[in-house]
């Protein structure tokens, strides 16, 4: 059934990493397979944060050769970055297979992403000025602890606890999805998209890339294409209700926005809390109560409802 949550502050930064961890841990029962975060910090001038992985967690149990392969893939990534003129300002490796690079680059992000992903076993999780996308197997506390998210300061974020139903239990199929190759856009989704293959083939014919067989990835690619065409986030969300078939409630973030859309049947839950300084959404109110313990007024958005909030 999966759990999704979103949080945005209207008046500056907070401990988004810690608060998203608390929200997602409260939703653990909705999806114990994997947990993911897309959090937005303060963007550095002319800098990107690139999060990428060079193996799956389960690969580590496959013998000693994988460790050598991981080292070789990292070296290959460094080589590619050097070739295309990327300056790596800072390297961090929260786990053996997951990496966080702070880079300076003024070229084409798609070319950068494509060349890095040509390296075997390598997948870019996100590239953004403000966005950092972290996802791995385990619950929110495990993932947040491993990636040291507990003190991450930022303005907004979304997250997902996954119960795998139609694709594998691995990082590739975990949410959130980065809207490749667009800077600072991420999606989480609860539901099932029934015209996934039809729309995926159509988008692939137009040159879009998919890395998983998870239907939720479609929403990220679909949104990215719409935004590329000049659509606003709200317009894209609105259009998706008519074009995406199935049951869904999804959240999408850009550098300074958090958006939500619900399908025509309102089949998937979402509880919304709006205060003067913040907006919190989650599949269940217990997640909101994890960061707002006092009594609050919450609402359920209706069918076909679209909302967008600014940071």
């Amino acid at each position: 059934m999966c759990g999704i949550a979103g949080l945005i502050y209207r008046d500056g930064t907070r401990n988004i990493g810690g608060e998203m961890t608390a929200m997602l841990q409260a939703l653990k029962h909705r999806g114990p397979d994997s947990t993911g975060f897309a959090v937005y910090g303060e963007p550095g001038p002319n800098e990107y944060i690139m999060r990428f992985k060079v193996a799956e967690q389960e690969d580590l149990g496959g013998g000693t050769r994988i460790h050598r392969a991981i080292a070789e893939r990292k070296a290959a990534v460094d080589g590619v970055l050097d070739e295309i003129g990327v300056t790596v300002l800072d390297r961090d490796g929260p786990t053996e297979y997951a990496n966080r690079y702070r880079i300076a680059f003024d070229g084409d992000l798609k070319a950068l992403a494509d060349q890095v992903e040509e390296i075997e076993g390598t997948e870019i999780l996100s590239i953004g000025n403000a966005l950092e996308l972290i996802k791995d197997l385990g619950d929110a506390a495990d993932v947040s602890g491993a990636y040291e998210l507990g003190g991450f300061r930022g303005t907004h974020g979304i997250g997902h606890t996954r119960m795998a139903t139609e694709s594998d239990v691995d990082i590739r199929s975990a949410h959130p999805y980065w809207a490749y190759p667009y800077n600072d856009i991420a999606v989480v989704h609860n539901g099932q998209i029934t015209n996934y293959w039809l729309m995926r083939r159509q988008l692939e014919r137009e040159g879009q890339r998919f890395v998983s067989n998870c239907d939720s990835e479609l929403l990220a690619v679909y949104t990215a294409v719409n935004l590329e065409k000049g659509m606003t986030l709200e317009d894209s969300l609105q259009r998706s209700i008519g074009e995406i078939d199935g049951v869904f409630t999804y959240l999408i973030t850009t550098r300074n926005e958090l958006g939500m859309a619900k399908d025509t049947m309102a089949a998937k839950p979402m509880v919304l809390y709006e205060a003067d300084d913040m907006v919190a959404l989650a599949s269940e109110e217990v997640a909101i109560r994890a960061i707002v313990p006092h009594e609050i007024d919450t609402t359920d958005p209706y069918d076909e409802e679209v909302r967008v909030w600014q940071a």
Binding site: A266, P269, V271, D297, T298, T299, D300
Partner: peptide, 13 residues
């Protein structure tokens, strides 16, 4: 089956 439940604020689906 029987009884009365009164909710002062909103309710879900």
């Amino acid at each position: 089956m029987a009884g009365v439940c009164v909710v002062e604020k909103n309710a879900g689906s």
